[in-house]
Lab assay of single mutants.
Amino acid sequence: YDEVAAQGEVVRKLKAEKSPKAKINEAVECLLSLKAQYKEKTGKEYIPGQPP
């Protein structure tokens, strides 16, 4: 859960800094992968601010 939240912060920071699109896309792919792992382990969708 904490990893997903941390990666979400990374994506937000990159977007706020107007980073190159390729770098943002890479961070988003990582975030989506973490969300998929979270769902696989818990059986639930990741919802920000609602730990399992």
Results as ranks from 00 to 15, higher is better:
49 G>S: 11
35 K>T: 02
35 K>R: 09
21 K>N: 09
8 G>K: 11
2 D>H: 15
17 E>C: 07
6 A>M: 14
19 S>V: 15
7 Q>M: 07
51 P>R: 05
37 Q>E: 13
45 E>M: 07
5 A>W: 07
20 P>A: 10
37 Q>Y: 05
50 Q>H: 13
40 E>I: 14
39 K>H: 03
47 I>M: 11
43 G>E: 06
28 V>E: 12
35 K>P: 02
27 A>C: 00
46 Y>G: 03
45 E>Q: 07
1 Y>M: 14
46 Y>V: 05
9 E>W: 05
26 E>I: 02
17 E>Q: 13
41 K>Y: 04
33 S>H: 12
49 G>Q: 10
45 E>A: 08
41 K>A: 12
18 K>P: 05
38 Y>Q: 05
27 A>T: 02
34 L>T: 07
9 E>R: 13
37 Q>N: 04
29 E>I: 04
21 K>Q: 09
34 L>V: 02
21 K>F: 07
48 P>Y: 06
2 D>M: 04
24 I>G: 02
10 V>I: 15
13 K>E: 01
3 E>M: 15
29 E>V: 01
31 L>C: 02
28 V>D: 09
50 Q>F: 13
34 L>N: 08
13 K>N: 04
51 P>Q: 08
40 E>W: 04
36 A>Y: 05
21 K>Y: 06
39 K>F: 12
45 E>N: 08
33 S>Y: 07
2 D>F: 15
46 Y>T: 03
44 K>R: 00
25 N>E: 12
10 V>F: 12
34 L>K: 10
30 C>T: 13
7 Q>W: 00
42 T>C: 08
22 A>D: 11
2 D>Q: 15
42 T>P: 01
2 D>K: 15
14 L>A: 05
6 A>K: 15
43 G>P: 01
25 N>P: 01
45 E>T: 08
52 P>H: 06
20 P>H: 08
15 K>H: 06
47 I>Y: 07
41 K>T: 12
44 K>V: 03
13 K>F: 03
35 K>W: 00
39 K>L: 09
43 G>V: 01
16 A>G: 06
1 Y>W: 03
26 E>H: 07
48 P>M: 09
42 T>Q: 10
44 K>L: 00
15 K>R: 09
49 G>R: 09
27 A>F: 00
38 Y>F: 09
18 K>W: 00
17 E>V: 07
38 Y>N: 06
14 L>Y: 06
52 P>V: 02
12 R>N: 06
24 I>R: 05
38 Y>K: 06
11 V>G: 05
28 V>L: 09
4 V>I: 08
49 G>K: 14
18 K>S: 09
5 A>H: 05
14 L>Q: 00
